[in-house]
Simulated scan of single mutants.
Amino acid sequence: MSIYNKISAGFAIGSHEPVTSGIEDVIYIFNQDDVTLTFDPTNPLIVTGLTAVSNAKVYKFEGTNNSFNTVSKLVKTQVGPRYTEEIDFNIAGLSVDVKSQLHAMGYGRVCAVVINNYKSSDSAIELFGAVNGLILTDAERNAADETIEGGYKLKLTNPDKTREPYPPRAVSIGAQSGTPTYASTLAALEALTTV
């Protein structure tokens, strides 16, 4: 009996590139229908292109002091492994505009790109919600919470019963048919970002 998928390589963590936890205090979020994803034809774990549909934009959320976090959890199902993806972040604000964005994230599906603190990897930049998107499942505001000055604590995660078929995808975009680099990938993201 043949196994559907087989491992094909080993790995070792060297002392010259120690793993670093956490993500940078920036998240790029876009409506799932607003950006077309292009995947590497030989590896579905690599996103090689993000193309805005009808001049849509990617929205940049910035934080401070490690206020953002990501989680990817393997869940074994009857049809194979699936992944639950979560992104936690804070918004230090409670304007009508902030509330409007929270409302939209609770109904619509979004995708999010994060930048890992660990840069010595081909997954330094990752996409969450590639297939099923993410929705806002938690938006908690405690007016007396001094840690975020009365702002919102948010959680984006997969909608009910719709986990991802793969772990978070690596984002690796080249500049004008050049070899993809960390810098060219960031430049591609920034080019889609609203001012």
Rank of each mutant, 00 (worst) to 15 (best):
N116E: 07
G14W: 12
A12Q: 04
L136A: 04
V75N: 13
N142S: 10
V195H: 00
N158Q: 05
A124S: 11
L50R: 07
L154A: 07
F128N: 01
F39C: 12
Y107N: 01
P165R: 05
G150P: 10
K76G: 12
K99P: 05
I29D: 04
N132F: 03
L186I: 04
T36I: 14
L189I: 08
D122M: 03
R109G: 03
G108H: 13
S8G: 11
T181I: 02
I3E: 06
A9R: 10
V113W: 02
E24Q: 15
K161Q: 13
L50N: 07
I7Q: 10
T77H: 11
E17K: 10
L102A: 14
S120A: 13
Q101A: 13
L37Y: 12
V171C: 05
L136E: 01
I7M: 09
Y152M: 10
V79H: 11
E190A: 00
L37Q: 12
V171N: 05
G178E: 04
R109L: 13
F89K: 08
R163V: 03
V35E: 10
K60Q: 14
K76P: 11
G63L: 13
T70M: 13
E190P: 00
G10H: 04
V53W: 09
S95K: 01
S123M: 06
G93H: 09
I87A: 09
A187H: 00
P159L: 10
I91Y: 07
S184D: 00
L156K: 06
S172F: 04
E62G: 12
T42M: 11
N65A: 15
V35M: 13
L186R: 00
S54V: 11
S95A: 06
L154W: 05
E164Q: 14
Q78K: 15
F128L: 14
S95C: 02
T181E: 01
E24L: 14
V171D: 03
T64W: 12
L37F: 14
Q176P: 00
G49M: 06
A183E: 07
V19D: 06
E62C: 13
D97W: 01
D145S: 14
I13K: 11
A112G: 08
I135F: 03
E190F: 00
I87M: 09
I91K: 10
R82A: 13
L127D: 06
Y59P: 03
E190N: 07
E149C: 09
E140S: 09
Y182P: 03
N31I: 08
I7Y: 05
L50W: 07
T179I: 08
I135L: 04
Q101Y: 08
T38I: 12
F128S: 02
V79A: 14
L74C: 11
V53K: 15
S120G: 02
E86T: 10
E62I: 14
T162C: 07
T162D: 05
V131M: 00
T193C: 05
G10S: 07
V195N: 01
A9Y: 13
A170Q: 04
E149S: 14
G106C: 08
V53N: 15
T38H: 11
Q176I: 02
E62M: 15
V58K: 06
L156D: 05
L136T: 03
N117T: 10
I115H: 03
L134G: 02
K99T: 12
V131H: 01
L127C: 04
A191Y: 01
E149W: 04
I115M: 05
A12W: 01
L192K: 00
G63T: 15
I135R: 11
L189E: 05
N5G: 04
T48Y: 09
P44T: 11
R82D: 03
